[in-house]
Design a protein around this nucleic acid. Sequence first.
DNA 1: CCTTGTTAGTTACAAAATCAACTATTATCG
DNA 2: CGATAATAGTTGATTTTGTAACTAACAAGG
Lengths: 146, 146
Amino acid sequence: MMEKDDFTPQDFLPFLLNRAAEECSLEFQGEYKNRYGMLRTEWRVLFHLGIYGSLTAKEIGVRAKIHKTKISRAVAKLAERRFVTRNRDENDRRAEHLALTPAGEMAYRDLRSVAREYDDKLTSRFSEDEAVLLRRLLKKLSGIET
Amino acid sequence: MMEKDDFTPQDFLPFLLNRAAEECSLEFQGEYKNRYGMLRTEWRVLFHLGIYGSLTAKEIGVRAKIHKTKISRAVAKLAERRFVTRNRDENDRRAEHLALTPAGEMAYRDLRSVAREYDDKLTSRFSEDEAVLLRRLLKKLSGIET
DNA sequence: CCTTGTTAGTTACAAAATCAACTATTATCG
DNA sequence: CGATAATAGTTGATTTTGTAACTAACAAGG
């Protein structure tokens, strides 16, 4: 009973992904937490609105793979702080179009530059090609090609 | 005031990492959850013991970048289910050496083969070179070269 | 020895995530 | 039309996590 055994569990992808994601998220958290007292889900929502302009909670969930209750609560907090506005869709009154307020825009641009610096710091460990490839592969893993 | 603007926040690495890790972890969870009712941290601990034989909670934490309280609770559950044993270090009686019981070994080998299949499925989307590079880069990101 | 500091691991309490059930609205189809 | 199903989003109950404080054991310096 010959068993091919080239599998090294310490290289198990979900395992490596979790570890890297955890490491980076925690480190990056230090950069923004004391700026706006924002939680991980909140800046992710903020980023999405900053990038794409206006989205519904549902759309954010699909793009970012975040659970809808997490988004619901994050949006509630962001709206409370006047970082986002909610606008009912007139064609489908279940959906709400979310967008950044000017204050939200400012916070986004600020965090965006912090993110850029941190991203540069991370990718400085790689060659340009490696960085490009890494991003492409990560997108492939989450089933998103764009 | 010219601003170089080659930074696309939707490609922000911590963001891509989180999304990919979340996607894979959730999908993989479906493969093992109903087998042993194990949580993410628990199988990660189980894997480490399976791979490295015997470790202290501290060592697992460093290698896997998992917070010590999470490990403490995961170990408690695994011990309760008779998957791991605890042995006080005689030289330093603060530390405990953890190891798998035969039942733990069986669970590990079972999950390991599930993991192998899932890993194959994931990496089948890439070329061999890409898969190797991806793992290398992920290790680099978590500050571990080995 | 004995104070002070450090480390391994646990635990209490607060914060957050998950799950299930819910409202309100729209879609489907007999 | 009218019943049933589906969808966007919210809320409450439960579970899990993170923070900080704790115990117990060791270490170093006086």
